[in-house]
């Protein structure tokens, strides 16, 4: 009985500890640390490689998730529209053991099939996703360069209709970039959306 209670207590402690770990994530206004991850062309990519950009659209995404797939074309459109000033940095953090679809080889395949105009990086150690506190795919972080700092300006979804891009009425990322360009305050700095939980390595 005592053992049972101890186990119960331990499990509850575990739950509380996991919640604390999650809350240490980047928030709007935080300065992010640069990273170096492998692109589908086998070259290493860092944020500092994009010397002429004004910022970045960092998207945690993957191959297998239906929501990520639903937003794939919209991510391509973001790159086509903003690639010169706010390039899309797509990052797949999923554990390929749990989701073979999300392996580096399959990322290469997907990038080729869809002719991704953006970099699609493999967060093999999952350290970047952990640093950001990303929890799901797709999960967008809009980052603005401020001198030598990279500051998060928006976190959340691309728009407000995952099923049908044409039926969306709020375009959070596009509106946030428009506000930054106009030197105005971003009206919606954070949104929530359902996504596939990132599969962490055990």
């Amino acid at each position: 009985m005592i053992l049972k209670k101890t186990i119960a207590l331990l499990s509850l402690t575990f739950l509380v500890v996991s919640a604390v770990v999650l809350s240490s994530a980047y928030k709007v206004g935080d300065t992010i640390t640069d990273f170096k991850l492998k692109n589908t062309d086998d070259k290493l990519v860092s944020l500092s490689d994009f010397k002429d950009s004004k910022g970045y659209i960092i998207v945690f995404t993957c191959n297998h998730c239906p929501y990520a797939k639903a937003y794939e074309d919209r991510i391509i459109d973001l790159q086509k529209k903003y690639g010169k000033t706010y390039p899309v940095i797509a990052i797949n953090p999923n554990d390929p053991v749990k989701y073979p679809d999300d392996s580096f080889e399959n990322m290469k395949k997907r990038a080729k099939e869809k002719n991704f105009p953006f970099v699609y990086l493999h967060d093999e150690s999952q350290s970047v996703a952990q640093l950001f506190g990303a929890t799901k795919t797709p999960h967008v972080y809009l980052v603005q360069k401020e001198g030598v700092k990279n500051v998060i300006r928006y976190i959340g979804a691309i728009d407000n209709n995952y099923q049908d891009a044409k039926a969306a009425t709020e375009f959070y990322v596009a509106d946030a970039i428009a506000a930054l360009e106009a030197g105005k305050d971003i009206s919606i700095k954070e949104t929530k959306a359902i996504g596939c939980s990132i599969k962490w390595k055990e």
């Binding site: 919640a19 979804a157 929530k192």
Partner: peptide, 17 residues
């Protein structure tokens, strides 16, 4: 489909996964 309208009302700490 407009997740942002109700996720916070379930719980403000829910990121959506």
């Amino acid at each position: 489909v407009d997740f942002n309208q109700w996720i916070n009302q379930v719980d403000s700490t829910w990121s959506g996964s």
